[in-house]
Design a protein around this nucleic acid. Structure first.
Length: 503
RNA sequence: GCCCCUGUCGUCUAGCUCGGCCUAGGACAUCGCCCUUUCAAGGCGGCAACACGGGUUCAAAUCCCGUCGGGGGCGCCA
């Protein structure tokens, strides 16, 4: 069986877009599943737009996603180099060969002239194709003109009869009429190879077996196959993935929200979640179980079953996947991830003691429900650290304002100030007594108590909250945690100062 | 304009190759109920799609033709 070799060939012109990340991911999955190799090649021949910074970011995003490559820049490999800017000799030697064999020719047309012709054709409703003006210039003559200093590009000599066709793994048989394909430029007049030429030389020399890339390359494929033929090389198999769109059915862009892998990373999306979600964009596992890790995806992935139509990026589903992946983490992993965001809040000491980690683990466990990512945790944690009756939400204020609520809180204060210890057990006992004393029950009993303890109208269950704050109040945090006793005292004070104002 | 790709619930999709098992399945979102001293989570249930028009056939989401919609390409960008 033929060895599987696939590649991801980005041009380092910006951050890694999730659409490109998906392309990389499908390549990676295919390689891993088939026991093949995944090659990273940097297409940096467009000097104007390529940047070293971008290449770095690109690689770090790829690594973060877990798409490690087997061959590529830096790590090398047998078919290197893996940066197009370092492969110029390869392009040159093959260009010479094509020129000698008459399969390519020098073109002296100026870009301005070409542009003029293009516009004219477009205006007439035709496909803008190169006229073939320089086709018949003999090689000898062309070389002489070059010597005198004239600039020329190199074009592939193509026929305008017949057609090119190929079997796309995802789309089936694709067919192009040669009449609509002109003589594509191979080498630009500045000596650098054009995309359609460089990919073929690179893919060919690197022995790429399957080219898995975006749909926007379908029409290029025809031109590339022509280059393979001119070189007498066997083209690889092709698979064209659909595009990733935003809600309004245009290509996913910043207008739609986060688009780069880095942005999702910063938002606290787990790498395993993005990985999982991206695999689901345009592909569905046969059994319908969608929450999968890398191993599961490698096993189930099937390139032939990838969807042909464009897929809209659904942030909601990504968040759901993220929640599912968060749940699967161990308590200590959850605490670690949470701490990455929590340490900015100034709540926690550094370094964290074992007791702090232990407390954090339990606290995170209770706060994770109802949160889309770890980055949303800091505001949740303020329930422990920021108790402030004077800054209650209107909703909380209303709960606590009624006469009956005050009675409940006053009674609660009497009990809690008289008892030497306070825990959830004693709280349960107190609520029973308060109920008897005040006649309040259900909502009217528990809502005021909740607000008295948290200064919030909603939050985690009190049976989880009480032990956590009590413990924390006895610990040494950078921002001290108020005990339940303190909280109730402050709340009562606040309410009383309010009522004296009103009087 | 020309060429190419594509069209199943709001979204991702299963089903389409081998017409009948499809009163079209799942998941996200949404809505309702249950659980719960609020919210969330969880459990249960509901709403919701074969783009349209013609064929072929006893029978079409599935095959054929056309229309319309969406996307991509038409560069000395990649």
């Amino acid at each position: 069986m033929e060895k599987v070799r696939v590649r991801f060939a980005p041009s380092p012109t910006g951050y890694l877009h999730v659409g490109n990340a998906r392309t990389a991911l499908f390549n990676w999955l295919f390689a891993r599943q088939k026991g093949g190799r995944f090659v990273l090649r940097v297409e940096d021949t467009d000097v104007e737009r390529s940047g070293e910074e971008y290449e770095k970011k690109l690689k770090s995003s790829l690594k973060w996603l877990g798409l490690e490559w087997d061959e590529g820049p830096e790590i090398g490999g047998k078919k290197g180099p893996y940066r197009q800017s370092q492969r110029l000799p390869h392009y040159k030697s093959h260009t010479q060969k094509l020129l000698e064999e008459g399969k390519a020719y020098y073109c002296f047309c100026s870009p301005q002239k070409l542009e003029e012709e293009r516009k004219k054709a477009l205006a007439q409703g035709k496909m803008p194709l190169y006229s073939g003006r320089c086709r018949s210039i003999p090689l000898e003559e062309a070389r002489k003109r070059l010597e005198v200093g004239e600039k020329a590009g190199v074009r592939l000599r193509t026929s305008d009869r017949g057609n090119v066709s190929f079997q796309d793994i995802i789309r089936g048989s694709l067919d192009f009429d040669l009449r609509y394909i002109g003589d594509p430029i191979l080498v630009r007049s500045n000596g650098l190879p054009a995309y359609n030429y460089a990919v073929v030389i690179d893919d060919g020399l690197m022995e790429i077996s399957h080219v898995i890339r975006g749909e926007d390359h379908i029409s290029n494929t025809a031109r590339q196959i022509l280059v393979y033929k001119a070189l007498s090389w066997v083209p690889p198999r092709f698979a064209h993935l659909s595009m990733v769109m935003g809600k309004d059915n245009t290509r996913l862009s910043k207008r739609h929200g986060a688009t780069s892998v880095e942005q999702f990373q910063k938002k606290g999306i787990l790498s395993s979640s993005l990985f999982n979600y991206l695999a689901l964009l345009g592909w569905a596992p046969p059994e319908g179980k969608e929450v999968l890790n890398k191993e599961g995806l490698i096993k189930l992935f099937n390139l032939e079953r990838v969807s042909r139509s464009a897929a809209i990026f659904d942030y909601d589903k990504l968040y759901w996947i993220n929640r599912e992946h968060m749940k699967k983490l161990s308590s200590s992993e959850k605490a670690q991830k949470a701490y990455a965001y929590l340490k900015e809040t100034g709540y926690f000491p550094s370094p964290m003691s074992e007791a702090h980690w232990s407390w954090l683990e339990r606290a995170v466990e209770t706060q994770l429900e109802g949160v889309n990512s770890f980055s949303e945790l800091p505001p949740q944690f303020s329930i422990f650290f920021d108790f402030d009756p004077s800054r209650m939400s209107p909703e909380a204020r209303e709960i606590v304002h009624s006469e009956s609520a005050r009675k409940v809180i006053r009674s609660f204060w009497e009990k809690i100030s008289q008892s030497s210890t306070f825990d959830y057990q004693s709280f349960v006992g107190m609520t029973q007594e308060i109920k008897k004393e005040t006649g309040c029950k259900g909502k009217h009993l528990y809502h005021p108590l909740r607000v008295a303890l948290t200064s919030r109208a909603s939050g985690l269950e009190l049976d989880q909250f009480i032990p956590l704050v009590e413990e924390a109040s006895r610990m040494n945090f950078k921002k001290p945690v108020k005990s339940c006793y303190q909280r109730v005292a402050e709340m009562l004070q606040h309410l009383e100062s309010l009522s004296s104002q009103n009087d």
